[in-house]
Design a protein around this nucleic acid. Structure first.
Length: 309
DNA sequence: GGTCCGTCCTGTGGGC
DNA sequence: TGCCCACAGGACGGAC
């Protein structure tokens, strides 16, 4: 599925293909994919047509394209959810099975004429959102020096790949919480871009149990966790580039990288690679967590006595 | 205000 | 072979 690194790969790819191009027409094939647009599908299409795309910006898993040509500063926001894809394709390419939205782009030499949004599970979507000052200096991270963000993404915290991510602020916010560490890092208001897979991988790398209460986190613990998140995101970003083919992030292709590199997630019953190298082969266990799963090594990620489940 | 849970949605795989 | 059901996940609204 598209994770933060894949969204960044998509953003980089889109930048060279769609930035500066006009939107000449919009077709919504499934109104559920624009359900977050308050004016409905017709308004989405009518408002977007005639604008032009300035650039592509990302924070966490939110991707947006500021638009030129509207009276109010507005961005086209896209979230890939679990199964969303953004493809740049020729107009005569066959429709994908789960094609949801098509943007007809202004002709540009050597560049395909359509931007397509494809989404199997419809957890993702596109919508228009007015841009506002954020008070924290804008996106700041990858993609833009703008001081404005879409209202719909203004609550999203910086991600760990953001050059100005504040570890000290992250630590203070963690300490103020009354929950466990995994719930905290899945909260996009605290740190963005972390999903279930990266949460488990980072906690494994940091030798931390998911049920550790956030108010017991010491500064070195927070730093260690952020460094683990950064390391995993950076490695995945590098690998995400290899699965990138003509602006297509292949969901199955991305899982190929993960299947080779994951140390905890999805490895229920398999020996922990860290314990194995130490000569003791503890088996990774799966626990139900928030209606999902958590994977941990019972030896190198021991649950604390004061665990908050 | 903070925390937590249910809901949205569809393809896949296991069990019968 | 075909049917049914559990499961996977991010974000958001609502309940507490």
């Amino acid at each position: 599925m598209p994770e933060l690194p894949e969204v960044e790969v998509v953003r980089r790819g889109l930048e060279s293909w769609v930035a500066g191009r006009g939107v000449e027409g919009v077709r919504v094939h499934d109104t559920r994919s624009v359900r977050r647009h308050t004016g409905g599908a017709e308004d989405f299409s009518a408002t977007l047509a005639g604008t032009s795309i300035v650039e592509t910006v990302r924070r966490g898993k939110f991707l947006w394209m500021p638009l030129r040509g509207l009276p109010v500063s507005t961005a086209l926001v896209a979230h890939l959810g679990m199964s969303g894809q953004l493809l740049v394709e020729e107009a005569d390419a066959a429709d994908e099975k789960h094609l949801k939205v098509v943007l007809e782009l202004e002709a540009s030499a050597g560049k395909p004429g359509q931007l397509r949004f494809i989404d199997q599970r419809i957890f993702g979507g596109m919508f228009l959102s007015p841009m506002v000052p954020t008070g924290d200096g804008g996106p700041g991270g990858l993609g833009s020096a703008q001081a404005l963000m879409p209202v719909a993404a203004a609550h999203i915290a910086r991600d760990v790949l953001d050059p100005v991510f504040d570890v000290e602020l992250f630590h203070r916010c963690l300490r103020a919480r009354r929950t466990n560490i995994k719930r905290a890092i899945l909260d996009q208001n605290l740190v963005s871009g972390v999903g279930n897979i990266y949460a488990d991988e980072a906690l494994w790398e940091a030798r931390m149990h998911y049920a550790r209460p956030t108010d017991t986190m010491r500064r070195p613990d927070s730093i260690r966790l952020v460094e683990a998140l950064r390391s995993i995101m950076a490695r995945a970003l590098e690998a995400g580039g290899t699965s990138f083919d003509k602006l297509y992030v292949n969901v199955n292709g991305a899982s190929g990288y993960f299947s080779r590199s994951l140390n905890a997630y999805g490895r229920n019953g398999q020996p922990c690679r860290r314990c194995l190298t130490g000569g003791v082969a503890s088996l990774i266990r799966r626990d139900p967590f928030m209606g999902r799963s958590s994977y941990t090594c019972p030896t190198c990620q021991r649950a604390p006595r004061n665990a908050r489940w």
